[in-house]
Nucleic acid binder design. Structure first.
Lengths: 344, 344
DNA sequence: AGTTAGCACTCTTATCCCTAGAGTGCCAAT
DNA sequence: ATTGGCACTCTAGGGATAAGAGTGCTAACT
């Protein structure tokens, strides 16, 4: 039923619509693209495409705009062709280089992800969402401590992927350098090489080995460590590019404020991203979206990994008429950088 | 020329205008406020206020809106009365409590200021800007180091105000724990008790004391420290609440994008804030503003201190018709929390 | 003197109506 | 299957008009 030219026309319409944000007319199509046929023929194609549900018209005598289903086949083609597309590949390597320039210097997890989101938002001109990594499969390298004052110290958790997190612990009693060194040695010895998730169970028994006089401080130390462990569990996301959403304000009929609130709450969005079961890049277009507030936006996402284990997702949020090909390259580039597979 | 009731009317008009964002009519004024006079009388008052430049009318038969000059006397009154105002005082203590709940746990400078900006933005419903503190008067307590891998270590700079900054240093050659301890000891000994600003000059000579084999690593260590010092000099600001600006989009006739860019660039805004020479809270209203992009917004700002030395400014950015009294309380509360005067 | 009622006057905003133009859908011809 | 041609539909924009909101002014009142 759908011919090759039909698809070409669909593709052209989507491209033009993304570029202009105006319903596309048969005449302007033949002007811009070389179909070698007249506008009347294109009109016939458009009619069949509309019958099949790939296009819709605002009213009888307006141009056509793509439906979600129309975007769907377009994006599917795009993702399919992603590996071969010279254009995407070029954009990918360029962005990868550009991103790594800023990212390579950052090791603090928060800073790294926050910056990543900002980079992605800037590169795409849309909003960017990055899930905090799932640390289930990451091993602890060591626990470190730095004394700040008589009763304060910074506790650091260092993983094999060299992500560093820290927390300032306030001790009930003053602590000496020596005591902190003992804390560090005992806890780090137990934690080293273990899964982050297992730390709570493993470290608690260590408490028993301290004399009553040190126990309160050791407890505070332990709580500091566990807080770092816990902070890996929060269903946190990094978000950037809110101002880009504003540019498309009119597109989000449901109301931008409610959309921003959903993002602020993080939980829903995090859960939603987690439930997308694809490791490969994927687009979720308009009405396909189960998060109501995103109903007339698109999500373009991919996942990043650690040694092949999926850590979390990277996504771009924008209007259904976003530039999928450009944004796909950006998402892939960032996902690649955040992954630890190709560690030098 | 300006009577007491004139001022009361001005005040009422401003309050109503802030609340409704509609030109205020004489009739609605007498309905909402108890002036005990008729609308005709109010009209006379409004006429004199307009003659004196406190009000303006969009067209002959519309209500009146405050001019920048009108806001000026209103805000001046407010700041004058700030100390006595029960309302502001109550709001102040409440917000202070609320802010401190989240802020007290944060010691990392970036995190602390970023969160502060977010809190302020949320409390005011406007955008918030916080200057990074001027570290000219802050003393270094110590330099610390944590080994992460054979050629990486986290270098930390701890100040007397217990602000902590860190940076991951990558060494050209691998380093042992012992060597790092020596680095730490030598550099920290020199830096301790000194002004941050003086570190570059003081630390460079230390390099000479290392054997040629260690020099490259020591150099990397030093560069890490200096980078931390340098990051205090960047004219950096923390910003939050961009989405709140969007709500007032129509108000920023000059264009929101350019405003956001100015904020993104940071430099201009930082310089501008630095040049405001008031330690006391201050409002900068609309056209008084020398930063063009802020020309039709207001800035409500105060400064925070360390032992009486001004560190930097805290500000709220919003439309000229923002809620000055509420926002003043919030700015004061945050400035108070960021100050180190009342250190426990 | 200051205040007030009353009314004419002004300007905006909404609504209706109309027309020009863009674009399609379809038919008959190729 | 494609195309030129043309009727048909719907929108966007431009007056024109009417209703309503609000002021400014005058003359009367306290």
């Amino acid at each position: 039923m759908i011919s090759v030219r039909n698809l070409a026309v669909l593709r052209a319409i989507i491209e033009d619509f993304i570029a202009t944000n105006e319903p596309v007319a048969s005449k302007s199509l033949v002007e811009r693209h070389n179909f070698g046929v007249s506008s009347a023929t294109i009109r016939n194609d458009m009619a069949t495409l509309e019958e099949e549900g790939y296009l819709s018209a605002l009213h009888t005598s307006s141009g056509r705009i793509p439906t979600d289903k129309g975007y769907r086949v377009f994006v599917d083609q795009l993702i399919q062709a992603e590996a071969e597309s010279v254009e995407i590949k070029k954009s990918f390597t360029e962005l990868r280089k550009q991103f790594s320039k800023t990212l390579d210097q950052l090791t603090d997890l928060d800073e790294r992800l926050e910056t990543s989101a900002q980079l992605l938002a800037k590169a795409t001109g849309e909003a960017a969402v990055i899930q905090y990594p799932n640390m289930n499969t990451v091993l602890v390298r060591s626990i470190e401590v730095v004394r700040v004052s008589s009763n304060r110290a910074l506790v650091l958790l260092i993983t094999e992927s060299e992500r560093i997190q820290q927390h300032l612990v306030v001790f009930p009693n003053s602590v000496t350098e020596e005591l902190l060194a003992i804390f560090r040695a005992k806890f780090s010895a137990v934690a080293s090489g273990k899964l982050i998730d297992d730390l709570p169970g493993l470290l608690k028994p260590v408490l028993e080995s301290f004399s009553p006089s040190d126990k309160a401080n050791a407890q505070a130390f332990l709580e500091g460590v566990l807080l770092l462990v816990g902070s890996n569990r929060q269903d946190k996301i990094a978000f950037a590019g809110a101002t880009n959403l504003v540019r498309h304000e009119d597109h989000f009929a449901g109301g931008l404020p409610s959309l921003l609130e959903t993002i602020d709450q993080q939980k829903d969005l995090f859960a939603f991203l987690s439930n997308v079961d694809s490791v490969k890049p994927k687009a979720i277009i308009g009405s396909e979206n189960s998060v109501v507030e995103l109903a007339n936006s698109s999500l373009l996402l991919s996942s990043y990994q650690n040694q092949g284990d999926e850590l979390a997702k990277v996504a771009v949020v924008g209007p259904t008429r976003m530039n999928y090909s450009k944004n796909l390259a950006a998402v892939l580039a960032l996902a690649h950088l955040l992954s630890n597979d190709s560690e030098e």
